[in-house]
């Protein structure tokens, strides 16, 4: 399946795009996506943290992904 991943802040700088398109096997979970992206963009491994959000909610590594989901990479937040 082909999924679109939204990027923000330093992740957008690292990936050089606000919208990443990623090809993943059907049945992949959030951890699979993270592993694939960290291989593709090793600089992601150096971040203090990298969380994944699905449909605007933080998810756990075992959360299954669907190509209809809105998926986002959330680097360390620093609002306020």
């Amino acid at each position: 399946m082909k999924i679109r991943v939204l990027t923000f802040g330093i992740v957008r700088d690292i990936t050089n795009t606000g919208n990443l398109w990623v090809e993943l096997p059907a049945g992949s979970n959030s951890a699979d996506l993270q592993t694939l992206l960290q291989e593709q963009f090793p600089a992601l491994k150096r971040l203090n943290s990298l969380r994944i959000a699905v449909n605007a909610e933080y998810v756990t590594p075992d959360t299954l992904l669907r190509d209809s989901d809105e998926i986002a990479l959330i680097p360390p937040v620093s609002g306020g």
Binding site: G9, I10, N48, I74, P75, V77, G79
Partner: peptide, 19 residues
């Protein structure tokens, strides 16, 4: 809350808390 702050200095810029 997914909000990010970038500090801009004379000689560069940094995303706060990223590294």
């Amino acid at each position: 809350v997914p909000i990010w702050k970038k500090e801009i200095f004379e000689d560069g810029e940094v995303w706060v808390a990223a590294h």
